[in-house]
Design a protein around this nucleic acid. Sequence first.
DNA 1: GCAAAGATTTGCT
DNA 2: GCAAATCTTTGCC
Length: 250
Amino acid sequence: MSAVERGSRRLNDGAASGPHPLRSRLSGPVEEAARALLRARLVREDSSGLRVGRVVEVEAYDGPADLASHARFGRHGRTARNAVMFGPAGVAYVYLVYGMYDCLNVVSGIEGEASACLIRAIEPVHGIEPMRAARLANALSRRRSRETNSRLTEERLARLPVERLASGPGLVTAALGIDRSLNGLDLLDPTSPLRLEPAPDSSEAAEDRSREVGTSPRLGIDYAGPPWTELPWRFYLADSPALSGPRGTR
DNA sequence: GCAAAGATTTGCT
DNA sequence: GCAAATCTTTGCC
């Protein structure tokens, strides 16, 4: 076997690797991409170990015509920030919102389309304590926490239920240690330090598949105006305790 | 070069 | 329930 052939095989199962199981659906219409992301595993592998979450809430953003999308900027095309949105499906688009929180999107559709899905919440599956530690480090890095009472912040986070560790777009990135340095990363590459994997073929995943999908308008996009504020482009597993809140539909 | 606003979260009233 | 925190990006002068 040549080095190239070895590189095209999975490290652990030895089977030939075909196209990524999510690639086809992520390359389709953005609503289908959003539904494909529900139940998928978001996997973070770095110096603090392995962290895995089940995607339970996403929002679809449909390219430059969608006035709620960052792809609408750039009168004559793309801007420095939204450039990766115009790339192929499966690329990470990470941006800073409100000067404080990083948000993770998965680029979808075909190249040049610039549609993407915002990961709004995950249910922690593995690496709970590293997630909690990352949330704490993130909270303490903010001036507000330092000036008020870091002891209280610490105690609150220590008691925070597992399903609240990543129950919002800014909390997903905090729990998994995701920032803008990961912008442009290929989430469909099984060797990426941040990647997407299909729900495993197990009884646990069978339960996942029976969970109902709910939809609602997207949150926090009043600036876009109708019809964009009305489209039911937020998708979530209806029974999840990890949905974003308190503003979210719980 | 400058002003305005933002795909959020938290803590206090 | 409301407003502050915080800083990058964008559009316009």
